[in-house]
Simulated scan of single mutants.
Amino acid sequence: MSCTEPLSSPTLPRMYEISADQARLDVPRIHEWLSTDAYWALGRPLAKQEAAIAGSLNFGAYHRETGEQHGYARVVTDRATFAWLCDVYVDRAARGRGLGTALVTAARDHLAPYGLRRIMLATADAHGVYAKLGFEPLAEPDKWMALGLQ
């Protein structure tokens, strides 16, 4: 599937479409959302967000009539064995319609043909949302480690 074609999701509200076309992203809007309202990215500089977008597979959720972006998700992946789903955000005015679930479903389904071994994510407060889509807590969290550099 081309990254410029709209993606499907069985849970996508009719008024929206999802695309992996990086050219459609409203980068200033994404930066505003994440740097001011997302606990994991507060204060993230625009240049850092632009670099993250450039090195990732990105998904936008857009209102069909206006073209305005209402949601975003980013995936860091080698497209062979591993992916990290991150920066999932739905505009506050568009929440409660299932758009976040549809966005994550479309990203997951877009990754399926790669035959990845694992898609990871971290969340402080949305475990139930991700569990509905097949995500589970780590079976052996004691095997995982992280290096925090900042």
Rank of each mutant, 00 (worst) to 15 (best):
M1I: 09
M1L: 14
M1T: 12
E5Q: 15
E5D: 14
E5N: 14
E5L: 12
P6A: 07
S8E: 10
P10C: 08
P10H: 09
T11E: 07
T11Q: 07
T11F: 07
P13G: 10
P13D: 11
Y16V: 02
A20L: 06
D21W: 01
D21Q: 12
Q22R: 15
A23D: 14
A23G: 03
L25T: 03
D26S: 08
R29C: 04
R29P: 00
R29A: 08
I30S: 02
H31W: 05
H31N: 09
L34K: 05
S35T: 10
T36K: 09
T36G: 03
D37E: 12
D37V: 00
Y39L: 12
A41E: 11
A41N: 04
A41K: 02
R44M: 12
A47W: 06
K48G: 05
K48Q: 12
K48Y: 06
Q49I: 01
I53G: 07
G55R: 15
S56P: 04
N58L: 02
F59V: 08
H63A: 10
H63Y: 07
R64D: 04
E65S: 11
T66G: 07
G67Q: 05
G67W: 06
G71Q: 03
A73D: 01
A73Q: 04
A73L: 07
A73F: 11
D78E: 09
A80Q: 08
F82L: 11
A83W: 03
W84K: 10
W84E: 08
L85C: 09
C86T: 15
V88L: 04
D91R: 11
R92A: 15
A93M: 12
A94Q: 05
A94E: 00
R95F: 01
R97S: 04
L99T: 03
L99G: 01
L99F: 03
G100M: 05
V104M: 06
V104E: 00
T105C: 03
A107P: 04
A107R: 02
R108I: 06
R108G: 00
H110I: 02
A112S: 11
G115H: 14
R117G: 13
R118Q: 14
R118S: 11
R118A: 14
M120H: 14
L121C: 10
L121F: 11
A124S: 11
D125R: 13
A126M: 13
H127T: 06
A131W: 06
A131Q: 15
A131T: 14
L133D: 04
L133C: 07
E136K: 13
E136A: 14
P137R: 14
P137M: 13
L138E: 13
L138S: 11
L138V: 08
A139P: 02
E140W: 05
P141Q: 09
K143A: 13
W144K: 08
A146L: 09
A146D: 12
L147P: 01
G148Q: 13
